[in-house]
Design a protein around this nucleic acid. Structure first.
Lengths: 128, 128
DNA sequence: GACAACTCTTACGTAAAAGTCAATTATAAT
DNA sequence: ATTATAATTGACTTTTACGTAAGAGTTGTC
C-alpha cells in the first residue's frame, strides 16, 4: 500500500475537484498531513473519502456524514459516552433501514414501469 | 377514501411546510385543483407527495424526482419513446442498487461499531 | 531558464431547496 | 358582527456544498 497520495490523484480516483477535498478538510472530515503547504493524503484519508462519497450518495449532509465518521472513531471513552454512541448508532441504522425500504419500493415501482413498457411494445409488434 | 385534503392536513401528515408544497407545485411535481384560490389535494396528489418524500429521503434532487415521477406516468407513446423510458428505468435502477450496496456497507460498519462499544462496556464491568 | 503541471490561500459567486415575512383574502365559530 | 383560523401571493433571506477566479509559490523537464 502506498504511503501518500497527492490531491489530484484522489480527485481523479473519486471524480471530484480539489476544491471539494479542501472543503472537506475545512469541514473537519479529513486531515491530510503537510509537506510544507502541500497536502499529503494517507491511505486512511483515502478510506475517509470513500466513506464520505458513500454518505453523499445516500443523501446525507456533511454534518450527518461527520457524525457517522465520528462513530467509527469510537474512543475508549467512559460508559456514559459509550451508551450515547450505541444510541446514535441505532438511530442511524433506523434511518438506513428506512432508506433501504424506500429503495425496495422504488425498485418495485420501476419494475412495474418497465413491464408496462415491454408489454406495450409487444402489443405494438402484434398489431403491426 | 376521501375526496380532498387541505394543505395543512398534508403538511401535518408529512411534516413539511405549506411553502414546501407550494414549491413542489411551482416545480411541477404536483398539480392540486382549486376551489377559488384555495388548493384542494386529491388522493393522487397525496400519493405523489409520498413518492416525493421517498425520493428526498434517498437524496434525489427535485429534478431527479421529477424524472422518476414522469416514468410512472408512462404514456402509451410510440416505440422509440418506450425504449427511451426502459433505458432510463434501467439507469435509475442501477443508481438504486448502488445506494442499496452503500447502505449494506454502512450498516455493517455500524454493526461493528456497536459491537466494539458493547464489548468495551462488558470489559469495564468485569474490571470493576 | 522557461514552460507546463501542480499546488496553495483568499475571496466572491451560485444553484437548490426551502425559510421567513408581509400584506391580503376567505371561512368558520362565537 | 367580530374574532380567530387558515389560505393566498410575492418577495426577500438563508443554508448547504461547492464553483470559480486571482495571484503566487514549487517541481520537473526539455
Amino acid at each position: 500500500m502506498r504511503e501518500f497520495y497527492t490531491i489530484t490523484e484522489l480527485t481523479r480516483e473519486f471524480d471530484i475537484s480539489t476544491r471539494t477535498l479542501r472543503f472537506y478538510e475545512d469541514e473537519g472530515l479529513i486531515a491530510p498531513v503537510r509537506r510544507g503547504r502541500t497536502r499529503l493524503f494517507r491511505p486512511s484519508d483515502r478510506v475517509l473519502i470513500k466513506q464520505i462519497m458513500r454518505g453523499k450518495r445516500l443523501g446525507f449532509s456533511i454534518a450527518e456524514i461527520r457524525e457517522i465518521i465520528q462513530m467509527y472513531k469510537t474512543p475508549p471513552g467512559e460508559a456514559g459516552q459509550l451508551h450515547t454512541i450505541v444510541e446514535k448508532v441505532e438511530e442511524k441504522r433506523a434511518e438506513l433501514r428506512q432508506k433501504r425500504k424506500d429503495i425496495e419500493e422504488t425498485l418495485a415501482e420501476l419494475d412495474a414501469v418497465e413491464e408496462a413498457c415491454v408489454n406495450r411494445l409487444a402489443e405494438m409488434r402484434v398489431a403491426s
